[in-house]
Amino acid sequence: MSHGFLRVHGRAQEYEVFARKARAEPLRMVGSVVAPDPDLAAAYARATYDEERWIEMAIVPRDQVTTLWAPGEESEG
């Protein structure tokens, strides 16, 4: 049993997971994980999204992503 351990850690934050299968492809977002630190987020990302043969995978804390416009808003282009 996991008594004494919170199911979602109090310090946890969301990390976006990016990956690509070939050098010619751009990195694309494949999902996200929730973890209290980057090391654990990396371990979780690798475990969760390891179904494909990625050549590159990276994680970014969600709060480090600057949103230019959100769904429902329009760009000026």
Binding site: S2, R7, Y44, A47, T48
Partner: peptide, 15 residues
């Protein structure tokens, strides 16, 4: 299916 978070569950299975 017993770890403290869903991510830890998946990590346990993968490891």
């Amino acid at each position: 299916i017993r770890a403290p978070s869903l991510e830890a569950d998946i990590a346990a299975a993968a490891m």
